[in-house]
Amino acid sequence: MHIALFVACYNDTLFPETGIAVTRVLERLGHTVTFPLAQTCCGQMHYNTGYHREAVPLVRRFVEMFRDAEAVCVPSASCVAMMREHYEMMAEAENDAAFLADVRSLLPRVFEFSELLANRLQTEDVGATFEHSVTYHPSCHSLRMLHVGDAPTRLLRRVRGLSLLELPKKEQCCGFGGTFAVKNVDVSVAMLTEKQGCVVETGAEVVTALDNSCLMQIYGGLHRSGSAVRTMHIAEILASEGVAR
């Protein structure tokens, strides 16, 4: 399949290893990956903070860029949630029939990374080996907006050498929440403290998720506390080809 990668602006800038991992996994499975260089941001930060007008050109840009893609892969559940929850409503408010038609036609071809693999491509074993204990944090947007269900854990269970440990209170938010993390610093950190405690309690070496935004928050707390638990986007685990014992 020809898969267009929308890597997400913050992954592009702060977590390039995630985009690289996504590319490696998809290519290893025999797909062709393209990366339209003109892509920037899905508009989520602006929209969710209340800058709705400012987000519209970014949505138009995304839609124009990926309009003809066979499938779009996005390694960020919250960006996909932004698209599915708001793009149609935004296009309706713009009173632009062509724009709305493009949005409606494109959205069913946009997939979060784990959805693309487990549901669209029906591939659970991606040929990865990762000899570590891992706990999975189901990010709020993947859980309650995308309803990815067990797609991510189905993928993780097929990784050779990986032991998956259940995260206590896994469905509770990590406290990131975009600009919430800086507008409500104290509450955000209080929420993080609880999440971080749950992660450490599992005894896992690695905590993973579908969103580097949540992982950035969890890393922030773990690293500050001197914990050795690593944060890794699920794509990086699935790209791993370490030798199994």
Partner: peptide, 9 residues
């Protein structure tokens, strides 16, 4: 309106 992470719970 900003006292939420929009977690959807």
């Amino acid at each position: 309106p900003y006292a939420s992470t929009l977690c959807g719970a």
